[in-house]
Design a protein around this nucleic acid. Sequence first.
DNA 1: ACCTGAACACCGTTCAAGT
DNA 2: ACCTGAACACCGTTCAAGT
Lengths: 190, 190
Amino acid sequence: MRADAVKNRAHLLAVARPAVAAHGIDVSMRDVARRANVGLATLLRHFPTREALLEALLHESFEALTARAKGLTTSRASAEALVTWVSECVAWTTEYRGVTELMAAAIDDTDSALHTSCVTLRAAGAGLLTRAQEAKAARPDIDGDDLFALIAMLAWAGDQPALASRANRLLDVVARSLLTERDAPTSRAT
Amino acid sequence: MRADAVKNRAHLLAVARPAVAAHGIDVSMRDVARRANVGLATLLRHFPTREALLEALLHESFEALTARAKGLTTSRASAEALVTWVSECVAWTTEYRGVTELMAAAIDDTDSALHTSCVTLRAAGAGLLTRAQEAKAARPDIDGDDLFALIAMLAWAGDQPALASRANRLLDVVARSLLTERDAPTSRAT
DNA sequence: ACCTGAACACCGTTCAAGT
DNA sequence: ACCTGAACACCGTTCAAGT
């Protein structure tokens, strides 16, 4: 990559991050290009789709959440680790309004730039879930796909202004059903 | 209303219904007008917003679901009635892809054409919930707003192609947490 | 009263032309 | 290699002009 292209790319990401934070992931691509004092076509050249731009912005977060799952595996009891991780995933998505929709679409779309990140994230959750199930701490009849869906649902609710105030209770409802009775911590147990 | 206006309105609704069913609630208003062989401005004159059009299309369904809640109150055990109604609400929204987003926005927006319908629906659910709670069949620490949020979350998941196959299990997860242990029916109990 | 075409300010896609 | 303006086909909003 040419030196000016490297610089352009970095500049675009620096501009896109606050724009996405302010307007959600539906922010106008044209607007991002404008803020970067660059032609729209230049933005599209670096990031041919919205997903590609998002992937570049979110890659580190995805990796951090995956690493966090591994860390929780060794540091916490299985039920607590699972709920903590779910809660952190949900909390993270609220930084990027609308990203849940994109993730739900990407998980089944091999062509999406977000596909690999989403699959990796789901696998990390599945690991925590399996561990909890082996310890008889989580209900055995759900799998990593269900867990991913539940996280997405909670994240979606957190994105809706009318529902966001209920986020903690909704997490608690899901968590209680996820865990078997005897080990069920409430969402305030940390 | 003038005779030609009445006819236009009915024709627009007849055309809009299959269009929404096919393309979801994000269907282009221009496209609906085109299919009706009418100017876009004419469509907007009858239904100044997308919400107004949707309200006209969905009004009967909202009323039916509200009536259904009342019917279940007298015909079923409180826990079963609650879960059945939740399940029927979720199933209904799948006919109108994307309507959940609109409902979540409308519930807190007094100006939305869908506001009243959503509030009424929420109240109907709250009634079923209260009855179940009084029978000690549902957990006491949630309210009608939480229930509305949970229904919306399940409906949203049903709208996502990648998550839809999990719909039954997700309903079961929510239902189990909603109900107290001893009375908890699985989602297949009917 | 009701309808309509047209102007407007947007959007993302595409590509020929520049450096 | 990389950038860019412009043309394109869309969108919903608004309104003056028609019947």
